[in-house]
């Protein structure tokens, strides 16, 4: 599978401040890739460089095998906290952007109907969730091959978050590669099949979304992680009585069997998703 985004040794400096530092990013075509990092980690800066809005201080970028900025017809970018002119109707917003992109507005109108969006309302009369729907419809006009979404659920209520997630899934099913940023880990947990973690401008992890399981036990020894690695070939970390392992669902009985064999009581097993992965990498980076 080819890469939709390839960025090598990407740097962006604002004076002496390194907003992005030697970031190498590869995003596979057809996937939904989550971009995780706390506020100010450099997510938006990376996304803006990928769309051609910002020039990198150093490094090389290829988006859909071309230089960013030359391919705007093939990508859709939804900036964070975007607001259309509130006195315009949703229909006029759609018509303007369809005309600018030289695409058929009827497709966007049809999509709006699917999402139950009232196009005759003024933007100011639409709820934040519906405003975000309108923005997503505008951005997806002309069926872009790549969608870059910068915190698309920021400021939305739980229903709005759910709706945006469904739209992202729908677009991905249509064949669109989605690169979506957020600092809310749970939000991306079920959605993404690839993840990139960024902290202080540095990429800490990129790869498949390895699922993490946590085992709350009645006591662990220092050697348990090493034994687990040696005997069952599972990488794990221990923190007090908590054992964390990056494993798929089917490997959970193997860990349980191993712990039982060592006479270690188990009180709870839970899936922790991105959270422990993120915490681990950020903790390691800080150390």
């Amino acid at each position: 599978m080819s890469n939709a985004i390839e960025a090598q040794m990407l740097c962006k400096d604002f004076g002496k401040f390194h907003a992005v530092d030697d970031a190498t990013i590869n995003i596979k075509s057809g996937c939904i890739c989550g971009f995780i990092g706390k506020n100010g980690a450099g997510k938006t800066t990376v996304m803006r460089m990928l769309t051609g809005l910002m020039k990198p201080s150093r490094g090389k970028i290829l988006v859909l095998n071309e230089k960013p900025g030359c391919i705007s017809a093939r990508i859709g970018f939804l900036p964070q906290n975007m607001r259309f002119d509130e006195n315009e109707t949703a229909r006029s917003v759609l018509s303007f952007f369809a005309a600018v992109k030289n695409v058929d507005v009827s497709e966007s109108i049809q999509f709006a109907k699917t999402l139950e969006l009232d196009l005759d309302k003024k933007v100011k009369d639409l709820s934040p969730g519906n405003q975000r729907k309108l923005q997503l419809i505008v951005v997806t006009g002309g069926n872009p091959e790549l969608l870059i979404l910068d915190e698309p659920t920021a400021g939305l209520d739980p229903t709005g978050v759910q709706q945006v997630r469904e739209i992202i899934r729908l677009l991905n099913q249509r064949g669109c590669t989605v690169f979506v940023s957020s600092h809310i880990l749970k939000e991306l947990d079920d959605l993404c099949n690839q993840v990139i973690i960024i902290d202080r401008g540095r990429i800490l992890y990129q790869g498949p979304c390895a699922k993490c399981y946590e085992f709350e036990t009645g006591g662990l020894t220092d050697t348990i992680c090493r034994d687990l690695k040696d005997q069952v070939n599972i990488h794990s970390t221990a923190d007090g009585n908590l054992l964390s392992a990056e494993i798929e669902k089917q490997s959970v009985p193997d860990v349980l069997q191993f712990l039982f064999s060592k006479n270690i009581p188990i009180y709870e097993v839970r899936r922790s998703g991105f959270e422990s992965l993120y915490n681990r990498y950020v903790r390691e980076a800080a150390q």
Binding site: R48, T51, G52, L53, S72, A73, I75, G76, F77, L78, P79, Q80, N81, M82, R83, F84, D85, F97, V100, K101, N102, Q135, V138, V139
Partner: peptide, 13 residues
Amino acid sequence: QNKVMDLLLTSSL
């Protein structure tokens, strides 16, 4: 400020 400029610039303009 409203980020509409970003959308315009990534819409073939």
